[in-house]
Amino acid sequence: MLKCNIGGFCVNIHSRFDFTNNLCRPYIDNGNSEPLFDVRVGESFLKKETEKNSHLTPDIVEHIFLASAFYKKIINFGGFLLHSSCILYKGKAYLFSAPSQTGKSTHTRLWQSVFGKDYVKIINDDMPLVRFTDGIPFACGTPFAGGTNININISAPIGAVVFLERAQQNQIERIQPFSAIPLFIEQTKHFNLDISTYTALLDMIDVLTASIPIYRLRCNKNEDSAILAEKTIVTQE
């Protein structure tokens, strides 16, 4: 079991495997904080799911369900995941969200190649945590980062959320909060949330959409898409 501090939340992560324990190591909490909750995956459940997902090894299956348990529980403590590739750029976090296989990671790699890896850090490549401090939304690294597992244990105030769509021509537009709600719900999707948990999630989405700009970026896989996005969403201060 490892006591971790993930985005300011202290939790116990129980894993049988090096895979998860290694990913959790940068998040280990050596302080005196009391853990808010524990996440673990039961032996029989793990066995059943590993048989069902025969293309995956047990350590990956366990990791997926630990992530899912973490994200379900954290909602009631004031955080939620947004399925996105999240970068740190000029002190702010920018989250590029879309359904799987759209090219979230592809797009943030374009940012790195255009603006340089020293200036564009991947906070979390698949499931950053969103939380609020004094009403300001922050994106935080977590040990759960989907396919590429790229993550860093840092957090930054959110500059914008960008929903990606594949297109031939690059085009970006700001979208109104209510138009963005279905997109947020789609990319924070959890099965089986009870009413109070779902209400807490919608409360946070409501606050987030009111406090930061949201964009739709139709983009191809060329560097021009990152240049257009940067020019539009990064406010010069």
């Binding site: 909060p177 709600i181 719900i185 089986n192 949330l193 009413i195 779902y198 919608l202 989405i205 009111a210």
Partner: peptide, 12 residues
């Protein structure tokens, strides 16, 4: 939410 109304499924 955000000036409109949504309905989402909960639980099972």
């Amino acid at each position: 939410i955000a000036g409109g109304t949504v309905v989402v499924p909960v639980g099972k």
